[in-house]
């Protein structure tokens, strides 16, 4: 798959724990310390090695780490902005997630984002089914949805419910207050001089 996904993991580790820790993880995973190129393709198994190595070095459970990685994605302005195109408020954003995989393909023809499917919605309760090539996209999604709730200023309880068997995971969002905090804001066109994310 695209290095973009591995590079996000690399960026998460480097930004939060420093270059020395990244070097340790890279060494353990058998990857050069220079890491990944977003637009080059790498073998899927490398992603698994990378996550395993990060869990071992940080001594953290896989799902907790993946949730943090998901939340970290939103700190990249490019990612945040592309996600915010999904809707004016958090509720509309949640509905737009059905299209996430297709939107990813729109940006990059063969980008393998997980498919998200809103299977039930009742009042403020949203239940998503997440399917992806790698086990753990559910946790990444949960982290991302949590960070996006903050971004929209919404108060929501997000729960990653791992589902045995089917290869699908479930994420539940309980939207308590869509206007709990101030929205961080989003202009349809980005300021002209924008630094690289």
């Amino acid at each position: 798959m695209y290095g973009l996904i591995n590079k996000s993991v690399q960026a998460f580790l480097r930004d939060n724990y420093g270059s020395a820790l990244w070097a340790q993880v890279a060494h353990r995973a058998g990857i050069g310390v220079e890491g990944f190129e977003a637009m080059l393709r790498y073998d899927d198994s490398l992603t698994e090695h990378l996550i395993d190595a990060a869990c071992a070095v940080l001594d953290r459970p896989r799902n907790a780490l993946l949730e943090d990685i998901g939340a970290h994605l939103v700190t990249f302005d490019t990612v945040r902005r592309l996600l915010r195109f999904g809707g004016v408020d958090y509720c509309e954003f949640l509905f737009s997630l059905n299209e996430l995989q297709d939107r990813g393909r729109m940006a990059l023809g063969d980008l393998e984002l997980p498919s998200l499917f809103l299977i039930r919605q009742c009042g403020g309760r949203f239940l998503f089914e997440v399917r992806g090539a790698i086990c753990g996209w559910g946790a990444v999604t949960a982290g991302l949805l949590r960070a996006m709730a903050d971004d929209y200023g919404a108060l929501a309880l997000i729960e990653d419910q791992e589902l045995a068997g089917h290869g699908a995971e479930r994420v539940q969002v309980l939207l308590l207050d869509p206007e709990f905090n101030t929205d961080r804001g989003f202009a349809l066109t980005a300021p002209r001089s924008r630094g690289a994310a």
């Binding site: 977003a38 490019t78 902005r81 592309l82 195109f85 939107r103 729109m106 990059l108 349809l188």
Partner: peptide
């Protein structure tokens, strides 16, 4: 309109990454 703006922005991001890759 929104999809068009989204595409334009995604395009800039992808081209930016490609440009950086090319220079590296």
């Amino acid at each position: 309109a929104i999809e068009l703006l989204y595409m334009a922005e995604a395009n800039v991001a992808v081209l930016g990454e490609l440009g950086a890759l090319t220079s590296r």
